[in-house]
Simulated scan of single mutants.
Amino acid sequence: MNTTISIFGCGWLGKPLAINLVNKGFLVKGSTTSKEKLKELQSNKIQPFLCTLKELPTNILEFLNAEILIVNIPSKNVAGFKNLISFIEKSNIQKVLFISSTSVFASAKEIITETTTLKNCPLKEIEELFQNNTHFKTTILRFAGLLGYQRKPGNWFKNGKIIPNPEGVVNMIHQDDCIEIIKQVIVQNCWNNTFNACADTHPKRRDFYTKSFLEVGREKPIFNENDEKSMKIIGNEKIKTTLKFKFKYPNLMQLPNQ
C-alpha cells in the first residue's frame, strides 16, 4: 500500500512539493486556506482540504489520516500549534516534518550549525512542541530564505525601499533544493533529527541584490551605507553528510533567471 502524506500548507512550496510526491507514487492530501484553490489541488491528484491553523476544520482527523504530516505554514501561533498537536496525537500520524526557518538564529561571528543556541522566540517554542512530543517522530527542517520561480529577489525591495546591511551576507535556498531535501528525509526515513538547509555560498548582500535587480530589469538598488554590519552564515554540512545531499543550486550568484 502506498504511503499517504498530508501537507498542511499547499502554497508556494507546498503545492509543487505535493505534485512532486504524487508523481513519485505517494498518496497526498493537501490543505489550503482558499476555496478557489481546492479544485486546483484536486486537478493535480491531491486530495484537497480547506484548513487554517486558527480554525481547524471539523474533518481535521480525516486530513490527518496519513502516515506522514508535513507542516508547512509560516504561522507563529503557539496556541494554534498546540491545538493541532492535540489532534495529531489522536490520529494515525507516525512522523511529522516541521518546516521551520533559520530566523530562529541570531546573528553570530561563527558559522551557525544545528547545535547553535536558538533565539527565544515563538518559532523556537513551536519547534520544541513537536520535538518533545512522544506520540510521533519529528524532523525539523530550518530553511534559509526561499527563492526560485515566482520568488525573485530582484522584486523584493519595491518603491525605493533602501536595502539594509549591504556588507552582510545572504543565506538562501532554491525551491527545487527544498523539495528534494524534503523527499530525501522521507525516502531515507531520517526522523528525530534537525537540519539547517541553505545553499553553499553566502555572497554579500550588495553583490547579490545588485545582480538580482539587473536580472529583472530594474536599476541598481539603493543600500543603507551607514547600517551596521551584522553577520549570519548558515552552515549546511550536516544535511550534506547525513542525507548525502548535493545541492542543485549551490552557488547563489549562478542561479538561473527563471
Score class of each variant (00 low, 15 high):
E219W: 02
N155E: 13
E228Q: 11
T116C: 02
T139G: 04
P166I: 03
S100N: 07
F130D: 05
G145D: 13
R151L: 07
E110G: 05
N20L: 12
T3R: 12
P221H: 03
Q258E: 13
K158C: 06
L97G: 04
T134L: 10
F247T: 09
S230V: 14
F195I: 04
S31D: 10
E180T: 10
G148V: 05
A108W: 00
Y249F: 14
N165E: 12
N192C: 10
N83F: 02
K244F: 04
K82N: 13
H174A: 06
I162C: 01
S43W: 00
L129P: 00
K246E: 15
T201R: 08
C121Q: 09
K109H: 05
Q94N: 13
P48E: 08
N165Y: 05
C10G: 06
G30A: 12
K95N: 15
P74D: 09
K37G: 01
N192L: 10
I182W: 07
L129V: 03
V96N: 09
L38N: 09
W191V: 05
L38M: 14
T102S: 08
S100E: 06
A79R: 09
N83V: 10
F223D: 05
I182T: 14
P74C: 07
K15L: 15
T117R: 11
N224Y: 01
F87S: 11
S230A: 05
K244T: 11
Q47R: 14
N20T: 12
K211N: 12
A79S: 15
I88V: 15
F157M: 06
G235C: 10
T52K: 08
N192E: 14
F136Q: 05
N92L: 11
E125Q: 08
L147W: 01
F49A: 08
M231Y: 08
C51M: 15
V96Q: 06
G168K: 04
L97E: 11
I163E: 10
G235Q: 06
K152D: 02
K37T: 14
N189L: 01
F105H: 09
